[in-house]
Design a protein around this nucleic acid. Structure first.
Length: 505
RNA sequence: GAUUCAAUAGCUCAGCUGGUAGAGCAUUUGCCUUUUAAGCAAAGGGUCCUGGGUUCGAAUCCCAGUUGAAUCACCA
């Protein structure tokens, strides 16, 4: 057996063999864990505070974190998911087999032990082993660091391992392990909040024949059972969630992966997590309140306060958040009155700032470009940017009183766009027109985008809203970015459990 | 996709203008008499990322590739 690719270590394999030969199970079926290390520490504290003896019996399990042999004594540190504690083994107190086995332990091995709590002469809280069992023998070397005073040796710090071998990284780096737990806690809190507000959780297909609801390059696949018909991974759940609304589910949400075949960087991963919800009979003004309430309440649940620090900047999620129309943002940050400027004036402003654009650019696209390039960087505290140009928002109702704009908002925090929401377009005839315009624009768009698959209009979706869709407010949130903010994390890869890495070889 | 930087022992790293491949930790063996000492001694361990080139001689210089990181581009 060539075990090179698996990193099996021949010495450890030999140890495994001798332990099995000695009758150790090495990979048993279960173990009764009666204490967590933290509980032992708490109990000792309590007993010592009341002046009582601390010699109680415990049974715990964990990984060997350090091993120090001294003649007929052996000291081990083991670590469970709560803490670390020292174990003391003495040759005379154990059977020969137990003593031999314990000497064959490697750092990283998982053991279960029974014994009495005591303090050594130096005062270190320890457990005197009276029985032990190997629960898993490692055959791969675990790079557990060693500390001598200030110095730490041997600590795994290779970034590649960090992302490729997450099990090792989390095992050895409790801060990042904590971060990932927090991610899932945040998602649970979001889900709880939705459910407590009477939304029902639904799912939409991961594999679709027509993709839509966003503009992005999709992942393509083929369906074997249907004559290898082309299919795509979902880029957005929007068009399916709206079918629920049409059908008479007034409050629906989904927490799902979206897949976009685009660049990978500190804030983008090809698959990412979103929550998207739709609520019948509401508009975007109502949804702004939902949004800020959700985020500030989740923040309070996980941090106990609505104020956080992100990369050294204090962020205040306390409601209500600032609201600023895109037009007002341009006025505020670069003093341009876009409302009273025609596209030629805006082109000059773009040129002045060396922002590239296409000759046939429209007023709305110019407004959006100017905003992106000049205003986003100013949006540090939670701010709703509202009322986008209609050209860039094909699924949104026209702004009441201004038919160049739509009723849409994007919340920004720390220059990051963390969501997107609309008064959803519910007129099927207008929706069809917008889709057609969108297709035309795509045909014109730059060749960088050329390799987008030519995607047909989702006719069934048009039919669905043709069957009558109530006025609806809809919101999408990039959960990964929320998690980045709430865990003070700079790159998305740190808070995605298994971020995309190029395969080896 | 572009640019810059990086890859050396299981892990973390050093290795100068090209001249026998190094350290600490981990590992193995020995020592260690019994609530510590995160000890002590010795040993084993290398395709210096891969492939070419220059050279008497390459971990080191050059070219190409692989993988990673940062920045940028793309991601309405």
């Amino acid at each position: 057996m060539n075990t090179n690719v698996y990193n099996f270590d021949s010495i450890k394999l030999d140890k495994r063999k001798s332990l099995l030969a000695a009758g150790e199970l090495l990979y048993p079926y279960s173990y009764d864990v009666l204490y967590q290390i933290n509980n032992i520490i708490l109990e000792v504290e309590e007993l010592e505070n009341t002046g009582k003896p601390i010699n109680f019996l415990v049974q715990i399990a964990g990984r060997v974190w350090s091993k120090r042999k001294m003649g007929k004594s052996l000291f081990l540190d083991i670590k469970d998911d709560t803490n670390k504690i020292q174990l003391y083994a003495n040759k005379n107190k154990l059977s020969e087999q137990e003593w031999n086995s314990i000497n064959l332990l490697d750092l990283g091995d998982i053991i279960g032990i029974r014994g009495e709590v005591f303090r050594t002469r130096k005062g270190e809280l320890s457990i005197r082993i009276s029985a032990f069992e190997i629960l898993s023998k490692t055959v791969v070397p675990i790079p557990i660091g060693k500390q001598t005073g200030e110095k730490t040796y041997n600590q795994l710090s290779d970034v590649e391992t960090k992302y490729r071998e997450r099990y090792l990284h989390w095992m050895l780096n409790s801060k990042d392990k904590e971060k990932i737990s927090l991610r899932f806690k945040i998602i649970s809190e979001i889900r709880n909040w939705m459910i407590s507000n009477d939304f029902i959780e639904v799912t939409t297909p991961n594999i679709e024949f027509v993709y839509g609801g966003a503009e992005a390059r999709p992942f393509k696949t083929k369906i074997w059972a249907l004559n290898n018909q082309d299919a795509f991974l979902r880029i957005s759940p929007e068009l399916y969630l709206k079918r629920f609304i049409v059908a008479g589910f007034p409050k629906v949400f989904t927490i799902c992966q979206n897949y976009r075949n685009e660049g990978i960087d500190y804030s983008h991963n090809p698959e990412f997590t979103m929550i998207e919800w739709y609520e019948a009979f509401t508009d975007y003004n109502f949804q702004m309140k939902r949004f800020e309430n959700l985020i500030s309440s989740v923040c309070e649940k996980v941090h106990g306060t609505t104020k956080i620090t992100y990369q050294g900047i204090e962020i205040d999620f306390t409601t209500p958040w600032k609201r600023l129309t895109m037009i007002d943002a341009l006025k505020l940050y670069i003093n341009i009155d876009a409302n009273n400027s025609d596209v030629e004036v805006l082109k000059l402003e773009l040129e002045k700032r060396e922002i590239e654009f296409q000759e046939n650019i429209t007023w709305g696209v110019a407004v959006a470009k100017l905003f992106e390039e000049t205003c986003e960087e100013n949006l540090i505290q939670p701010t709703f940017i509202t009322d986008h140009p209609v050209e860039i928002s094909p699924l949104t109702k026209i702004k009441r009183g201004n038919n160049r704009l739509v009723e849409r908002f994007e919340p920004f925090v720390c220059k990051m766009e963390i969501g997107n929401a609309y008064s959803e377009l519910t007129d099927p005839v207008v929706q069809l027109e917008r889709f057609m315009q969108q297709k035309e624009m795509q045909a014109f768009s730059d060749n960088k985008r050329k390799n987008y698959t030519d995607n047909p209009i989702d006719a069934d979706f048009i039919k669905a809203i043709g069957c009558g869709m109530p006025p609806t407010g809809g919101v999408g949130i990039g959960i990964d970015r929320i998690v980045m903010l709430l865990t003070d994390t700079k790159t998305i890869r740190d808070i995605i459990p298994f971020p995309m890495v190029k395969p080896k070889n």
